[in-house]
């Protein structure tokens, strides 16, 4: 990237030039991503520990999850990642309208993801496959399993935290849509879109780990 060193209105007063502002934001974002990875890392450790303690229970309990809905959600989220990349690419290429379209597509995919998640959750609530003390499902296929409530505790905490990230991501994307439509983001200044893009890919990446861990193995 090259920029002239005049002071455009998006340059904050404490930076020398646009490059420094951009580089700083990027570094900060990556540091934040590291923090996120460690947050989920703690939960992945909990998953591994309990899986090694109750291997049969985990194998048995994951059959209660709906693989089709999980797979569909995986496809939805990967596609949304693609549209996010395209939105950033489009704005670099000065294609404001295309970028806006792609952002809206990303937003809708995210909404769809949460919708499918809602269907899954509501089914689990109905049959009593709930975390911890509220677990009440006693179907024959899991009757022989030890402590299935722990599986659902970890399932709800991890997918719930991930869902929260999707929701936050939707809020951020909505703001991007607004800012792009208003023309505040353009080919010379699209740092927020790129940063939120990085965040969105992380959300996608985490799901790519969650899906096989809970639904497949």
């Amino acid at each position: 990237m090259s920029h002239d060193n005049s002071s455009p209105d998006f340059l904050q007063h404490h930076f020398h030039d646009v490059d420094q502002q951009y580089e700083t934001a990027k570094l900060g974002m990556w540091a934040f991503i590291l923090t996120e990875v460690l947050t989920f890392g703690g939960l992945f450790v909990a998953y591994v520990v309990y899986r090694s303690w109750y291997p049969e229970m985990f194998v048995g309990a994951n059959l209660l999850l709906d693989v089709n809905k999980g797979l569909l959600n995986t496809i939805v989220l990967i596609t949304s990642s693609l549209t996010m990349v395209l939105a950033v690419w489009a704005i670099q290429q000065k294609k404001q309208k295309l970028s806006l379209f792609m952002l809206i597509a990303t937003f809708l995919f995210a909404f769809m993801f949460l919708g499918i998640k809602y269907l899954e959750y509501s089914h689990k609530f109905e049959v009593g496959q709930l975390p911890g003390e509220y677990y009440s499902y006693m179907g024959p296929e899991i009757a022989h399993l030890n402590n299935p409530h722990i599986f659902f505790s970890i399932y709800f905490i991890m997918t719930g935290l991930h869902g929260l990230h999707v929701a936050i991501g939707m809020g951020l994307i909505a703001w991007l849509i607004y800012a792009t439509a208003k023309g505040n983001l353009h080919s010379k200044y699209y740092t927020p879109m790129e940063m939120i893009g990085i965040f969105w890919h992380l959300v996608d990446l985490i799901w790519i780990y969650l899906f096989p861990l809970f639904y497949l193995i």
């Binding site: 923090t35 996120e36 460690l38 947050t39 890392g41 703690g42 939960l43 909990a46 309990y50 109750y54 975390p131 911890g132 003390e133 509220y134 030890n146 402590n147 409530h149 722990i150 505790s153 970890i154 905490i157």
Partner: peptide
């Protein structure tokens, strides 16, 4: 981040009895 998630798990243990840290629940 690790203490943050630990505190969340502890709060959920008290609220929902998730059975991660409480030996009575596995």
């Amino acid at each position: 981040p690790v203490i943050a998630i630990t505190m969340v798990l502890l709060i959920l243990e008290r609220l929902l009895g998730i059975g991660i840290f409480d030996p009575a629940l596995g």
